[in-house]
């Protein structure tokens, strides 16, 4: 009896020892990765830190070499100085107007088109869906010149219209695709039940599909907000006068007019970066959800 008990005891001890070494090994594994990843993060964030650091330096002290990371003195005054050197309040207002028009247009029309592809039946639907998908692979550059010509003829150049109105025509193939994929996951039984009660297609769209698709609509809204915030080529082509510029092209103008004033330039750039990062911090899951759906599109 006692021999057997001893044996069990030894076995248990061995098991514990194995577990202990495993736990220690695991601890080192964790520690190693933590150190490596923290190092990576430092390198990745260094440019952004440098952006903020330069934006707070006194004029002249940004040229110190070797460079100093902590500004001395910390010059917050660079921000108001940069913001008033060019009318950044107008740039911001214009950008927000574009956002308002374009994001609304994208959400309304992309979801309607998605509805037409997901729920309505008509001849040629699948053919047109293939066409829609293939336009995603079209280089946007081909239509650059004709689009410009169209807006020139309409007399819309140097207004915000070329940046907002196109969003009202389907809101981009990718967004349609994203919303359609989500609509497809909503059971058809809901529609059928509503139809039995005499609901119209539009009613089903507005009262069933849209309320159930809030997550994907928020994702599309955020992604298109970021897209229009960062957009550069279109505003560059369509906007001329200073009072009509958006943030992105306004920042470019600032760079051209204040060459060499790096601290002010970095302050201006920071004001463009910060809203996007704040948005990301608060809505992180919506950002990545869109991308995850994109990735699955590849499967």
């Amino acid at each position: 009896m006692s021999v057997r008990a001893d044996r069990t005891g030894i076995a248990v001890q061995r098991l514990l020892a194995v577990r202990r070494t495993r736990r220690i090994r695991n601890l080192f594994w964790q520690l190693g990765w933590q150190v490596a990843l923290l190092a990576c993060c430092t390198v990745l964030l260094a440019p952004l830190a440098w952006l903020v650091s330069t934006s707070l330096k006194e004029t002249g002290s940004e040229f110190e070499f070797p460079p100093r990371w902590i500004p001395n003195p910390v010059t917050w005054g660079n921000y108001p100085e940069a913001m008033t050197a060019l009318p950044f309040h107008l740039f911001f207002r214009n950008t927000m107007l574009v956002e308002l028009g374009a994001v609304t247009g994208t959400l309304v029309t992309a979801s309607l088109v998605a509805f037409a592809f997901a729920r309505l039946r008509y001849p040629g639907r699948d053919f047109w869906f293939t066409v829609l998908i293939s336009t995603m692979m079209l280089p946007g550059i081909v239509t650059l010149v004709p689009h410009y010509v169209i807006f020139k003829t309409l007399g819309w150049v140097d207004t915000l219209l070329p940046l907002t109105v196109p969003a009202w025509f389907g809101g981009g193939a990718f967004n349609v695709f994203l919303i359609r994929q989500f609509f497809m996951t909503i059971p058809l039984e809901f529609d059928e039940a509503a139809r039995v009660d005499g609901a119209s297609s539009f009613w089903i769209y507005a009262r069933i599909l849209v309320p159930l698709s809030r997550p994907v609509l928020i994702t599309v809204g955020i992604l298109s907000f970021v897209h229009h915030w960062n957009a550069f080529l279109e505003p560059l082509i369509y906007l001329n006068s200073t009072v009509n510029l958006t943030m992105a092209v306004g920042l470019r103008l600032f760079r051209n007019q204040f060459t060499g004033e790096w601290n002010l330039m970095m302050a201006a750039a920071t004001t463009m970066v910060v809203p996007i990062i704040v948005l990301f911090i608060f809505a992180q899951r919506y950002f990545t959800r869109g991308i995850v759906l994109t990735g699955l599109a590849g499967r």
């Binding site: 990745l44 463009m272 990545t288």
Partner: peptide
């Protein structure tokens, strides 16, 4: 953290 650089507005990041 790895994702943040990719949403930084391009105009700002190029100037930086």
């Amino acid at each position: 953290v790895f994702y943040v650089p990719s949403i930084t507005p391009q105009v700002a990041s190029v100037i930086l």
